[in-house]
Simulated assay, not measured.
Amino acid sequence: MTLQYCQNCWFNGLQFGALGLAVGYCARHKKILNAPDSTTCGQQIRKDLGLSRAQAVSVIHSEQFDQNKIVRWIDNIEVKSDTSISSRDNNILRTDIVAEAVTDYGNLDSKIESLSQLKALSLKTARADVAFVSLGRSYVRNCIRNGGKWISGIHLYWWTKRRLAHVPDIAIEELRFLGSAQITRQIDLTKWSIIMLKLTLVDDIVQYSRESNDELGSTPGLLDYVADHISTFNVRRLSLFIRKEIIPLLDSHLNYDRYQEISRELHKDN
């Protein structure tokens, strides 16, 4: 699997590795992705990487592919059948509850409204977690690049942190493929990947706060911190480590009282 494909991009909230629907959806190009495991564009940014590395790789990637075209990764050729803007296709896609929220992203009064819907849906399906984090990372990065403060992502940070240690349930019908792995192995790999994906959103906001010299920024890089302490692939152990080590560490710099204070500041600025 090439990680520069559309299926691994922030702007596609419907897929991540083995998890997701048969088709993806690009929130940037507003197109259904019929061949997300073979296409890409110059705006692709990898959701399996932490912020700094993802942005560095994205710069290199943008030099090789047109930002305004979805093309085949292998030959850089645009194939019309690889995507769809058909209203009939879109209506079919929207019969899925997660896809409905994803396709609405950017079309409703506020992108936060769509993210809030995905937050609620995450209690029902792990696919909503993927969509929430993927589009959430894009939302905060866009706010920062447009001159906003790191606190623009404070609600996403708090919502994600609350469920950071949660081990998601994965139903067999939510998997796009198994490859050569046994079902139990693939499900465990997917659970691990989703937990780590949620950690990337929290880590993004920690990094943004660090650049603004906020107290939260004194938290060490979370992805490296986990890698240094969890040496074996064990989902339960990862969850336990996050609950006992990561969350208290984060709370020592940003507890609920400070969250409320920042929320009031954000509301005042708006």
Rank of each mutant, 00 (worst) to 15 (best):
D37C: 05
N12I: 01
R88P: 04
I45L: 06
I77F: 11
V71T: 09
E63F: 06
F16D: 14
S81R: 08
A18E: 09
V98W: 05
V59M: 05
W73E: 14
A27D: 12
Q67H: 12
K69A: 07
D89N: 13
I74W: 07
D75E: 11
A99D: 05
I85N: 11
N90Y: 07
V57H: 05
V98K: 05
K31R: 15
A27T: 15
E63H: 09
L93P: 01
P36F: 01
S62V: 00
E78I: 04
I32V: 12
K69T: 01
D37H: 07
S38I: 08
G24I: 02
Q55A: 08
I70M: 05
L51F: 07
I77Q: 15
C41H: 00
T95Q: 15
T39Y: 07
G20K: 04
G20H: 02
R94V: 12
S81N: 09
W73N: 11
N91D: 15
G50I: 04
E63N: 11
S84W: 02
S86W: 06
Y25F: 15
Q67T: 12
E63A: 11
L33K: 00
P36W: 00
L49D: 06
A56T: 08
L49G: 04
L49H: 03
V71I: 13
Q67N: 15
L14H: 05
I74M: 13
D75S: 06
N34F: 08
C41D: 02
Y25L: 07
S86E: 08
A35P: 00
L21G: 06
I97K: 09
I85Q: 14
N34Q: 10
I70T: 01
C41Q: 00
Q44F: 08
S52L: 14
V23S: 09
Q64E: 14
K47M: 14
D37Q: 09
Q15W: 03
S58G: 10
L19H: 06
Q55K: 09
Q44H: 14
N34L: 14
S87K: 13
K30A: 11
D66T: 01
H61Y: 05
F65C: 03
H61E: 04
G17W: 05
Y25R: 05
Q43F: 10
S87W: 07
L51A: 12
V79S: 02
I45N: 02
L14D: 10
S84A: 04
D82Y: 03
E78A: 12
Q55F: 01
P36N: 08
D96K: 04
E78M: 09
K47Y: 07
D75R: 02
N91H: 13
K80G: 06
N12F: 00
D48N: 04
R72W: 07
F16P: 03
R94G: 06
G42D: 02
Q67I: 10
Q44P: 03
N90R: 12
S87C: 10
K31D: 03
D96M: 08
I45K: 02
S52Q: 14
W73D: 10
T95M: 15
T83K: 05
D82H: 06
V79I: 12
K80Q: 14
G42I: 02
